[in-house]
């Protein structure tokens, strides 16, 4: 089954590479250039896994993560960061991020994380279903 992926980053080059690589693997991927844009997209259609940069102008990754987890608690978010800040990592993880990954990240590893995050979402949905 395919995983609906949303990539959020203000860096066009990064987005382009990501979209290319996921598309090459026949995985549906959508891109958003900012946190606000990502939230708008999420409002319109559901996504399974969000890959999001921490540092973005406007609404930053942590704020957007908080909003995503509040509105769509089952959507899993993998945070990417260019600058290692332990404090922001702590915040991200305690807000419910699936992982907090230092850039640059090996694509195959990222793919594995996306699969694991999706598996978690399915498990979570399975548990919530009988209610």
């Amino acid at each position: 089954m395919s995983i609906r992926i949303l990539v959020v980053d203000d860096e066009p080059d990064f987005i382009e590479t990501m979209v290319k690589r996921f598309t090459f693997r026949k995985m549906p991927v959508t891109a958003a250039p900012s946190g606000i844009a990502a939230l708008k997209l999420l409002e319109a259609e559901p996504f399974d896994v969000v890959i999001m940069d921490v540092r973005m102008p406007g609404k930053d990754g942590i704020e957007t993560l908080k909003e995503i987890k509040k509105r769509y608690p089952l959507t899993e978010v993998i945070m990417l960061t260019g600058h290692a800040s332990v404090e922001s990592g702590m915040r991200g993880m305690s807000l419910g991020a699936y992982d907090y990954v230092l850039k640059p990240v090996d694509f195959d590893e990222l793919l594995e994380k996306v699969r694991k995050a999706h598996e978690r979402k399915l498990l979570n949905e399975g548990r919530n279903a009988p209610r």
Binding site: A84, V86, G89, Y100, L102, E112, K116, R120, L123
Partner: peptide
């Protein structure tokens, strides 16, 4: 939510994050 995962894969991202700082 229980998932099958290697400890190293769980820990390494966190180690990298702290290591740089």
């Amino acid at each position: 939510i229980l998932q099958q995962e290697h400890l190293e894969r769980i820990m390494e991202d966190m180690v990298l994050l702290v290591e740089k700082e």
